[in-house]
Every structure is written in structure tokens, then in C-alpha cells.
Nucleic acid binder design. Sequence first.
DNA 1: GTGAAAACTTACCACTTGGTAAGTAAATCG
DNA 2: CGATTTACTTACCAAGTGGTAAGTTTTCAC
Lengths: 220, 220
Amino acid sequence: MALAVSSPTKGSRAARTKATEDRILTVALESFGTKGFDSVSLDDLAADLGITKQAILYHWPSKLALLNAVIDRAAFELIIEFDGALSEDGSGWSRVESVVRRIFRVAMRRPELLGFIREISRIGGDASLRVTTDLEPFVTRATVYFEREMDAGRIRRCNPGLLLVSAYSTVLGAATEVEVLRAVGIEPTLRSTVVRRRELLSFLYAAMAAPESKNDQAPR
Amino acid sequence: MALAVSSPTKGSRAARTKATEDRILTVALESFGTKGFDSVSLDDLAADLGITKQAILYHWPSKLALLNAVIDRAAFELIIEFDGALSEDGSGWSRVESVVRRIFRVAMRRPELLGFIREISRIGGDASLRVTTDLEPFVTRATVYFEREMDAGRIRRCNPGLLLVSAYSTVLGAATEVEVLRAVGIEPTLRSTVVRRRELLSFLYAAMAAPESKNDQAPR
DNA sequence: GTGAAAACTTACCACTTGGTAAGTAAATCG
DNA sequence: CGATTTACTTACCAAGTGGTAAGTTTTCAC
């Protein structure tokens, strides 16, 4: 665990502080996202980090305060990952495709990030309110994009919010629902992932593209 | 909490035992499904039930043994709920539609059931192996059904397992991902649920139905 | 009816939990 | 340099955790 996080042995004090908080947030995000918030104690976190629990409580006054910080971090990273795809070149389907590819990449390389969002949704209350607020600008951008594509006749006309949720949970499910995949006889190997992504893209294309499509190209 | 579970004041001893275990499983399923396994202590459960923690440990030797029992119960109830839909009358799309409607109904009326399956998937290990095993017969039936529909040209040809996962996570997402829905401006009221289900059905129809469809009727 | 098994409860325990208080070595500032 | 702030650690605690041991009452077999 806790690899690729620089050791706190150089730089100014302020820089070192920031580096420590960064390490804690990174490890906390990974643990909360994979094991769940309640399943990870501050002692567990501290042990992973090679520090004491009280060091964590020095930077944040309580475990809940830490959770909020992790939420902000997760939302920030999610936006970084996905928002770029919305600004990329290409129109209509090819842009959607690039978003899906990106989600897949994130789901493969950093499953804890998407797992964490789901975990937060389940916790509910202040936590999910916070993640909602954090992600609001991105959601707005995506919705506006969808509406424009619908106006242009490249995406089937429908409720853009629901389309977003459908696409989101479809991709998230296919990317992260490892146990379910296993249940239907799909081993989550790297090779099968490529196949899965292609199949999913054509699933989404069929669902989203406008009937008499003006898209540049259908997926193969 | 814990409503509609009969009080243990009559019947034979064996019947009373079974009734008690039933009550415990019901409350445990609800709590584990909504709050998560680790977030619910045996004391919490016992308090909800109006018994002592040791009464639970009398029926199952440990919390993990209880979890396994809850898994079996959840899988059983899921199969009861969904398997019937696969046997219903109607062919092609109308059958898929009835399954989706049923999932929606379950997601609305018993969110803890689907939440629990998701929770188990996250726990991983023996637990998810068990749920996989429990659900295997149903998955097989669904897969066989999909394949037959593809052969008949009523459903777009693709990997049936992945189609199942895609449909599963799409429906599950739209039905349970309340916070995400809220994030995109969809309040989960009862009225909006009807709209959401209709939109989702047309999303799925577009994704699943064969291009030149031989289906009895397209969804409205 | 009587002995035994079943279905509990009360009492208890070692361990973990989030969190506080007090101390300490190092960096920063005057 | 000396005082103070920063970034921690060691020591500790009350509450809660899953689980054991030993009763106690009710039901059942005979």
C-alpha cells in the first residue's frame, strides 16, 4: 500500500505539511473506496502510512472531517479525469466514446475512486450532499453538452439528466461490478476488458445515438 | 424499524424458533443493506429486535455466520422476485420489459435488498463467492433466455453475459443511485419514478432490441 | 410428573474504536 | 541566539465491539 507517495524528509515546513496531508488523503481515499468508511479505522490508516493515529487527528479534528477532505479530493480528481474529455475535439458520438474510454481507464487503474463515490452515496446525509455540490459544475457541463448534441440531432432526444445517470451507471457497473461479471462468467482480465469495453460502447451507441444518425462514424 | 414481523408468543417451539430466526434475518438484511455490514453491530440489531445480542449468537455462532445466512436469504428473495418474470407470458421485448418493471418495483419497495447485494460485492471474498453461487441458477436461466431471443432475432446479437450486466447495472443505477439522480436534478419522488422508468425502458429498448426488430411492440 | 433439551438472559471479558492531554524534537522568526 | 509555533509521539480513556460462560425459564419427550 501507500506507494509512490514521497517520504517527508525535505522541503520547507509548509511543503512537508502539505505532502503529509496529501499522503494521508491518498491512502484514505484508497482505503475508504475499497473497504468502506466504517471498515477502516484511523489506526488502520495510520499503520498503512507508518505514522500514528494522532498525527492524522492533528491535521483534521475528527474522522468525519477527514472524510470531508477525502470527498473534496475525490471530486477534484474525478473532475480532472473526466472534464477534459468533454473539452476534447471530435463531435457527437466520438466525444461520448472518449468519455466512456476515460471512465473505463479510471475504473481499471483507480477503482477506489469510483468505489468511493458509490460508498459516499450510500452513507448519505452531509457526505453525499457534499459530493453532489462538488460535482455540480461538471454535471452541469455534461448536461449542457448532451442538450446541444440532441439539438444537433446526433443524440437521441430524451431527458439529459436521466441519460447521464443511465450512461454513468452502465459504465460504472460494467467497469467495477467485478463480482457480478464473475457471476455471469466474465473473468475481469485485462484482455477481456478490451472486449467488454467494445461491447459496452456498442450498447451505449445503440442506446444513445439518434435513429437516423448524423454521427461521423458508428463504432465497430 | 422491524415492522410486520410477528411477535414470538405462540405456536410450537420449532415454529417459534423459525419465526425468531426469520425476524432476525429480515432486520439484519435491512440494516446490512442500507447501512453496510461493518456499520451495524450485533447490539444494534438486537436493539432493533428487542432482544439481546446473545440471542442472535445463539442461532448463529458468529456475525459472519449470520452474514452468510442473510446472503442466502437475500439471494432466495431475489430469485423469487425476478425468476417469475422470466417465466411470464409474452416474448421478446415485452418480457424484458416485465423484468425491468419488476426490478424497479423491488428497488422502490425494498431498496435494502439490492443495496445488500452491492454491499456484498464490495466485501468480496467468501461472501461474494456465496452470493454468486446462490444466484448462479438464475443467471444461467437469464443467459439462456437472452441467447434464445438473439437466435430469434428479437434482441441485438451480443455477449449475453455482458448484456445482462449492462442491463443490470443500468436498471440498478437508475433505481437506486438516488444521490446521483439528485445531482443531475432528478428528485426521487414517486411521480418522477414513473417517468424515469419509462425513459429507462426506452433507453434499454434502444440498446437491446435488434435493428430490424421482430418485436411485438416498441415501448411508447 | 420429571428430566432434558431448547431458547433465551444476565454477567462478563479482551480488544478495538474515535478522541483527549501532555510531552518533545525540529523548523521558523524576532 | 532564544522564544514560539509546528508537526508530530507517547500515554491514556470511555464507549463500543464480537464473543464466552453461566444461569433461568419454557417446551417437549417419556
